[in-house]
Amino acid sequence: MLTVHHLGLSQSERVVWLCEELGLDYDFKRYDRRADNRLAPDAYKALHPMGIAPIITDGDLVLGESAAICEYINTVHGGGRLAPPPGDAEYADHLFWFHWSNATYMATKMMVGVIGYGGGDPQRVPFVIERARRANVLMEARLGTTPFFGGRNLTLADIMMVYSLTTSRAFGAGAPMDDLPNTRAYLRRIAERPAYQRAMAKAEPGMAPMID
């Protein structure tokens, strides 16, 4: 049985949403963060040697890493429905955004978060700010020409990107999106999806999705 182990306010939100989009029969276990340090509880850390979210179990399999989990679930349990096949005109774009989310973009957001709290090397601040600006320009351009990051249809690229644009901001990573109209419109469209609404109700009950 596929089990999604969700740590509150974490990247495992993506996995819950993916399972809901695919309409899968899965087991859901939610873990609250510790009150003293806001980290994962011992029971969650014991699931995987890295001790971090997200984690799924599927029979004897224990798998970590958002992208690996999403690709595994989509391929093994979802028939590959949320990824264009090789040869599709949108295949390469889907791959770019799928990997860009947790590579360049999340790293940039983390650097901006450090600067925002007054840390880091002042000589590197312009470099980080410029990289963040270029990331915003890139996203706005993409979402100004296509309804989803993955192209004409929702793909795993969107499953990965949305957390980076929404709940991750709870940790102070990223600036307001007032000057990103295409991105904000995209998030409003995502928020209207029944599968996303079901996922957020399970993953973060009582918390309004951070789409603005």
Score class of each variant (00 low, 15 high):
53 A>T: 10
55 I>S: 06
55 I>H: 04
55 I>V: 15
56 I>E: 02
56 I>Q: 00
56 I>A: 05
56 I>S: 04
57 T>I: 08
58 D>G: 10
58 D>V: 07
59 G>C: 04
60 D>L: 07
62 V>R: 14
62 V>S: 14
65 E>P: 02
67 A>Y: 00
68 A>G: 10
71 E>T: 04
72 Y>I: 06
74 N>P: 07
75 T>M: 02
78 G>L: 05
78 G>W: 00
82 L>R: 01
85 P>H: 07
89 A>C: 05
91 Y>P: 11
91 Y>D: 09
92 A>V: 15
95 L>A: 08
95 L>R: 12
98 F>Q: 05
100 W>V: 04
102 N>L: 12
104 T>L: 10
107 A>N: 14
107 A>V: 09
108 T>C: 13
110 M>V: 15
113 G>H: 09
114 V>I: 15
117 Y>S: 11
118 G>S: 10
119 G>C: 13
120 G>F: 12
120 G>M: 12
121 D>P: 13
122 P>M: 15
123 Q>E: 15
124 R>I: 13
127 F>T: 15
127 F>A: 14
128 V>C: 11
128 V>L: 14
128 V>W: 11
128 V>M: 14
129 I>Q: 14
133 R>A: 13
133 R>I: 08
135 A>F: 03
138 L>S: 03
138 L>E: 01
138 L>Y: 00
139 M>E: 00
139 M>A: 00
139 M>C: 04
143 L>N: 08
143 L>M: 08
144 G>C: 03
148 F>E: 03
149 F>S: 04
152 R>C: 09
153 N>Y: 07
153 N>W: 05
153 N>I: 02
153 N>T: 11
154 L>A: 07
155 T>S: 13
157 A>W: 00
158 D>A: 08
159 I>S: 03
160 M>A: 07
160 M>S: 05
162 V>E: 04
164 S>P: 01
169 R>D: 09
174 G>A: 13
174 G>N: 14
177 M>Q: 11
178 D>F: 06
179 D>Q: 08
180 L>H: 01
